[in-house]
Structures are given as structure tokens and as C-alpha cells.
């Protein structure tokens, strides 16, 4: 499978997202195209990862987990970086839709982070020999999961939308201090986890299949974040319209935060 096909998919996803951002009139349908691309990309990407990719010279078939684990963690970091950006922006321009974006990205980031770490544990058992170990990378990943669970819990405990937005922006900025340490931990310190790989360290077919899955999961990340953003926006509209008539469980946080 030539590498350019994966880059075409990646560019298509990014381009569609650009259209979605630039032309508000297209927002009703662009996400549907992205959803189709994402679902189709994951289905075909799974086939490529499980059937087409060659077995690794060292790890055999177990390394096929990489095609899911790596893009999931990338997407988690991407979403959480957007959460950081939106948190900073909110403190400058008190716009509640920025708060809705932070909320959406934190949840999507925590979702991808959780399954990414879970897959890492499943991969670790047959290759490292252990499900888990407190090396710098895994420790910072665990901190990321609990810190952002706390962030989502905070949102549940504050009723006033303005205060909730400001406080969670503050917590989001402080929480983001873990992200650079998480990313660079494998470079700064000796760890059990291997360093970030790259196109130069992979067989071209393996790299292009990884890129294909990354593009597919990126499309799904955009769709998830956009849909979650719409839910958050609608909740805010209700809160502003009828602050006193709110049911106590509004501003729902899904089970990931538990």
C-alpha cells in the first residue's frame, strides 16, 4: 500500500475540517462526511492492520496493537491540547462557547486516552512481560487520566455556568502541565516504554497503515468533539434560558469520569 493514499485521506480529513470551520453554512453536513470517512477508515484500517501489514521481525503479530494504540494516544493529546488552548482563550474572551469546546475536548481526550492506555497494557503483557509498570511514561499517562477525570468531575459540581467555565479553564491550564512531560518523558529519562517511532524507523507499508488509521481516528475525533460540543452548547442555552429550572443532573458527564 503506497504511503500517499494515507496522506490523501489525512489531507481530506483536515481539509473537510477546515471547510467546517471556515464556512458555517457547511456545518450541517460536513461532519456527516467526516463520520463516513472515519467509520470507513477504521473498518478498512482494521483490515489493513490485521491482515495486510506484515508481521514484525521481532514481535511477530502482537505489534498490530500499535496501529490502534499509537493513534489513540495521539488523538488524546491532540484533544487535550485543544482543551488547553480553549481554556486559555476563555480567560481572555469570556465566551461560553469556548467553554463548551473545552468540555467537549476534555471528554473526547479522556476517552481516547483511556482506551490508549488500556491497549498499551494489553500490548505490554506479551512484549514487556507486565501489564503495568511505573516507568516515567506510564506514570505521566496515569496522571493525565486522573487529572482530567477530576476536571470533568469539577464541571459536575458547579452549577453557575460562568463560574464553572472560569474555574474549569484554570484547572484545565494547570492540568495541561502534565502533557509536555508525558510527551517528552521517553526522551528525557530512561524508561521501559520505547521512544517515539517515526517514518524512518518503520517499514513504509507499516508507516502508511499507521497513517491511514491516524487519519480515520482523526476524522472520528473531530466528529465526536463536534457532537459533544453541540450537546454542551445546548445545555448552556438551556441554563441561560432557565437557570432555576435546571434538573440537578444537567451538564452530564459520561461514565468515563467515574
Amino acid at each position: 500500500m503506497p504511503t500517499w493514499t494515507s496522506y490523501v485521506l489525512l489531507l481530506a480529513v483536515l481539509g473537510l475540517f477546515g471547510v467546517h470551520l471556515a464556512v458555517p453554512a457547511t456545518r450541517a453536513w460536513v461532519w456527516k462526511v467526516l463520520a463516513v470517512l472515519g467509520v470507513g477508515g477504521v473498518v478498512s484500517g482494521s483490515y489493513l492492520a490485521l491482515a495486510v501489514a506484515p508481521a514484525d521481525h521481532e514481535m511477530g503479530d502482537v505489534y498490530r496493537i500499535m496501529f490502534a494504540h499509537v493513534p489513540e494516544v495521539w488523538m488524546a493529546l491532540l484533544a487535550l491540547c485543544v482543551n488547553f488552548g480553549a481554556s486559555v482563550a476563555f480567560l481572555f474572551r469570556k465566551d461560553l462557547s469556548l467553554d463548551a469546546l473545552s468540555e467537549a475536548c476534555a471528554e473526547v481526550g479522556l476517552f481516547f486516552g483511556t482506551i490508549g492506555v488500556l491497549l498499551g497494557a494489553i500490548w505490554g503483557r506479551p512484549t514487556w512481560g507486565v501489564w503495568w509498570d511505573w516507568d516515567p511514561r506510564l506514570t505521566t499517562a496515569a496522571i493525565m487520566l486522573v487529572v482530567y477525570s477530576g476536571y470533568l468531575a469539577l464541571r459536575k459540581f458547579v452549577d453557575d455556568p460562568e463560574k464553572r467555565a472560569t474555574w474549569s479553564a484554570v484547572v484545565g491550564i494547570i492540568a495541561a502541565s502534565d502533557l509536555p512531560i508525558l510527551w517528552f518523558s521517553v526522551r528525557w529519562w530512561r524508561s521501559l516504554h520505547q521512544r517515539q517511532s517515526g517514518a524512518g524507523k518503520m517499514d513504509p507499508t507499516i508507516w502508511s497503515i499507521l497513517m491511514w488509521n491516524t487519519a480515520a481516528l482523526m476524522a472520528l475525533t473531530i466528529v465526536f468533539a463536534y457532537q459533544r460540543y453541540r450537546i454542551a452548547q445546548a445545555t448552556r442555552a438551556r441554563e441561560v434560558a432557565l437557570p432555576s429550572a435546571l434538573p440537578p443532573d444537567s451538564g452530564d458527564v459520561p461514565s468515563e469520569a467515574a
Partner: peptide, 8 residues
């Protein structure tokens, strides 16, 4: 909020 942040 505090405990996870303080882990490092």
C-alpha cells in the same frame, strides 16, 4: 482535583 496533580 489536588491529589492527582501532586503525584509528581
Amino acid at each position: 482535583l489536588l491529589f492527582p496533580l501532586l503525584v509528581p
